[in-house]
Amino acid sequence: MLHIINKSPLTNSALDSCLRVAQAGDILLIEDAVYAATTGNLFEGKIREAMGRFKVYVLQPDLEARGLADRLIAGVTPVDYGGFVELTTTNKNCQSWL
């Protein structure tokens, strides 16, 4: 399953909840969730830990828009909107953690 997260983990529990409940699959960080994929933020450890169970992607245009393209955590895969579409097709279902 593809898990789509769109909120900063520092203000909202969506990513935390996803990591608590979901067991495996792909995680795509979009909109304000891209902050989770940057080095030095409080959530970095949790993302690194999550990469053992999930493959983690980030929507690159959202990262660039926020001035953090140079702070991407190694091992998180950047994708464009086409890559986002691809992820929804390679996974058999998806969930937006709103």
């Binding site: 399953m1 409940v21 699959g25 279902n93 969930q95 937006s96 709103l98």
Partner: peptide, 13 residues
């Protein structure tokens, strides 16, 4: 709960 989510066709939130 995670397993149950995996089994769905359409997840709406």
């Amino acid at each position: 709960m995670g397993e149950l989510m995996d089994q769905q066709d359409v997840v709406l939130s």
